[in-house]
């Protein structure tokens, strides 16, 4: 049996892991096992390894083959090699392909945990602007122009703060 990673040498390391009832199997040659850190299993997760296999094909299907991150110059080929991304902007660059990958890897696709307080204030403000804008439309429609003027001022004030 050939190594799943390099497809050159005979596989001598066989790994099996069961996650949520699904069995994953990988066969590796000694060199690839060493390179992927399998000989040091403390820092090793099967998912990381699988990233270098089937998972990277998913990211490729997502976009055009020659996609490159405008911020750091990272490409899909680099991802295939390392199983790591180049910078935070890569998450937008490769968003389509990553969505598939993340679906198979995590519980959900939306972060529901904590966020930096600074950002959470900004997000709250942006949400407030959106809801004020709907109120404004309503006010205009109902010809409540005094309310509309007040809402407009409030929106402008918030947008000014958001840009700061």
């Amino acid at each position: 049996m050939l190594c799943d990673v390099c497809q050159k040498n005979d596989a001598t390391v066989y790994l099996t892991q069961i996650v949520e009832g699904k069995m994953q199997k990988v066969n590796l040659c000694e060199d690839c096992a060493k390179e992927k850190g399998v000989s040091d299993p403390t820092g090793f997760a099967m998912a990381d390894l699988l990233l270098g296999l089937g998972a990277t094909q998913q990211i490729e299907h997502g976009g055009q083959p020659a996609q490159k991150c405008p911020v750091c110059g990272f490409t899909q080929i680099d991802f295939k090699k390392t199983g790591r991304l180049g910078c935070s902007a890569c998450y937008d660059t490769f968003a389509d392909g990553l969505a598939n990958l993340l679906k198979g890897m995590h519980k959900g696709l939306k972060h529901t945990g904590k966020m930096p307080a600074k950002l959470s204030r900004r997000f709250a403000m942006a949400d407030r602007v959106k809801s004020l804008e709907t109120d404004l439309k309503k006010a205009v429609k109902n010809e409540k122009y005094e309310d509309a003027a007040r809402l407009r001022d409030e929106i402008q004030k918030l947008e000014h703060e958001l840009q700061a």
């Binding site: 990233l51 199983g83 790591r84 998450y91 990553l98 890897m105 972060h111």
Partner: peptide
């Protein structure tokens, strides 16, 4: 959407 962004998607 995705929260804290990390080098490895895991």
């Amino acid at each position: 959407e995705l929260g804290y962004l990390t080098a490895c998607p895991t």
